[in-house]
Amino acid sequence: MSIALFFVLAIVAAAVIVQPLLPGSRATSYPLPSGRGQSRSARPSSRVTESQGPACAGCGAPVKLDDRFCVRCGATLGEAQETVCAACGTMMSADDQFCRKCGTRVTTTEAQQ
């Protein structure tokens, strides 16, 4: 009984490990790293929404890129812009054109109006 258990485990484990190496497996589509040392730009997101710009990290109000204070809550935004993506909440820096997480395009509030 115990021996059977052991052999079943061993066989299943070996099968799972060897399977991708067999001809005809779909493993060849698995993403490989790009070449060493090359910097590869991030894959663009499938959808780019245009309407949302940077938001105050404190209250979520839309802010302009060069604002030093949030117009709504008065939080200090700092020169390096303490902003988050209005779509997903990821931290952004002032010179970001797209959110690195969800790909939302950053537009200033002037552009929206």
């Binding site: 485990l9 799972v16 490990i17 060897v18 991708p20 190496l21 497996s25 493993a27 589509s29 490989l32």
Partner: peptide, 27 residues
């Protein structure tokens, strides 16, 4: 090996081996 020789199927096999260790150590 998979990274060096650029063979994705070896990396998938490595991934599967790690899933196997997770199951075996659970056992």
């Amino acid at each position: 090996m998979g990274t060096w020789r650029r063979r994705p199927e070896l990396i998938v096999s490595a991934r599967n081996a790690l899933l196997v260790t997770a199951c075996l150590s659970t056992v």
